[in-house]
Computed example of a mutant assay.
Amino acid sequence: MKIKLLLFLFLPFLSMAQETLWRLEIPSEGGAIPVHLLLTNDGKAFAINAGEKLEFDRVFTVEDKLHLRMELYDLELILAIKDGKLNGILNKRGADMLYRQVAFTGTANDPARFKNRAAGAARTLAPKYQIAFKNESSGKESPAIGVFEVNNGQVNGSFLTNTGDYRYLQGNISGDSLYLSALGSTAVMYKARIKGDSLTGGISYTPFGKGSAFSGVKNDSYALADASKLTFLKEGNDRFNFSFKDINGTDVSLSDPRFRGKVTVVQILGTWCPNCLDETRFLTEYKKENPGIEIIGLAFERSAEPSFAYPKIARFIERFGVDYPVLLAGTTQDAGEKLPQLNHVMAFPTSIIVDRKGQVRKIHTGFTGPGTGSYYDEYRKEFAAFIQQLQAE
């Protein structure tokens, strides 16, 4: 039986509630991760990150607890709200398919992200930094760009990498330090010192461990590697083909009549992948406005068991109004094996653009999403111009 989402109006602990912004503090090794949760009086819930309202898929009650689920991220918040106080559990399934939990608290109607942690005047943050993330276990460094907008010490921004971006991050400057956080596939926090034109001692945290260290230096002209040159067809291949099943068990191939003579985008994705969800929103909207294009999604999931993967893909299709086939291609671990014509699958998502003659014309690694501001605008312009060029040929 489907649960109606107007339950807020009937719950004893929310019977007097209007739209309420809750500031949650989720513990981590680096201190509390502050994020914002919006509960509305029509039974909806949203994670608030900078300019984004990220809606939870399901809102329902069990006994006296309110459950909020993001189905594709395997994330659930379980809340108890009483006398203006919130106590909760964050329940998250990781890439290893195991669930982990952490308890947290919340305060109503507190819009501040990070509390003022240091005395003295706040340091100045540049709009753009050349960033290096370092894996502390392997010592491997990965390049990135940090982009930030500052308004009265409040900061919105993101990190761009060769495999995608870190989506919407929100925080502030306190004294000599930058603090950013977000709630999405999990809760995450980034901290760094601002020293002149540099960011030093940066580190990221989730409720379940410490992430990569990072540092950076102001660099207005810095650019990442060309995203169209990182993934390519192996020598001797100029075409790309495959055959995988959709959620109805029907085999779909790029050589099917539906795609012949049409410009087609093959989207390598995972329903668990935040950047893939951003790309899917973009592609779905673009296809509605440009119906001459075709798109095929190849989903690589945490498990290829149909009982697990097909419901994920079905929810993915429903949530974003996807009107193109999304096929179960395999697991994240065997993407390279399932697509042997490629030199590698470096990132989820990766988009392969095929022209009317069936030849691969461009392979774009990663996706630059709406949290990156002008970078996203530039990506959309370049994508549209390239598709129009191919359609005109």
Rank of each mutant, 00 (worst) to 15 (best):
K2D: 09
L5I: 06
L7S: 01
F13A: 12
L14W: 13
Q18D: 14
E19P: 09
W22P: 11
I26A: 04
E29L: 03
E29N: 03
E29V: 01
G31R: 07
G31M: 07
H36F: 11
G43L: 13
G43K: 10
K44V: 05
G51H: 12
E52F: 02
E55T: 09
D64L: 13
L66V: 04
H67P: 04
R69Q: 14
L72V: 11
Y73K: 11
D74C: 09
E76V: 13
L77D: 00
L77Q: 00
I81Y: 15
G84N: 14
L86I: 05
N87H: 10
A95K: 11
D96W: 04
Y99I: 12
R100N: 06
F104S: 02
T107N: 01
N109E: 14
N109I: 00
K115N: 07
A118H: 09
A119W: 00
L125R: 04
A126T: 07
P127F: 02
F133K: 13
S142L: 12
S142C: 00
P143Y: 02
G153T: 06
S158W: 12
S158T: 15
L160Y: 12
T163E: 13
Y168L: 10
I173A: 04
L178D: 12
Y179G: 00
S181M: 08
L183N: 03
M189R: 03
Y190C: 01
K191I: 10
A192I: 01
L199W: 07
G202R: 02
I203W: 01
G209T: 03
K210E: 14
S212I: 03
V217G: 14
N219F: 07
D220W: 00
D220I: 00
Y222T: 10
S228G: 03
F232S: 06
L233H: 05
N237E: 10
D238Q: 15
S243T: 15
N248M: 09
S253G: 09
R258M: 14
F259M: 04
G261Y: 08
G261M: 06
V265C: 02
I268C: 02
W272S: 05
C276M: 13
E279Q: 15
R281G: 07
F282Y: 13
L283K: 03
T284E: 05
Y286A: 05
Y286V: 02
N290A: 02
P291Y: 11
G292P: 00
E294C: 10
E301Q: 08
R302P: 06
R302N: 13
S303K: 01
P306K: 07
I313R: 01
I313H: 03
A314V: 13
R315M: 14
R319L: 14
L328M: 08
G330Y: 04
T332P: 00
D334P: 09
E337Q: 15
K338Q: 15
M346T: 05
P349M: 05
T350I: 03
S351I: 08
S351Y: 03
I352P: 03
I353H: 12
V354I: 15
G358E: 10
I363F: 09
T368M: 15
T372E: 13
E382P: 00
A384H: 11
F386C: 09
L390T: 01
L390D: 01
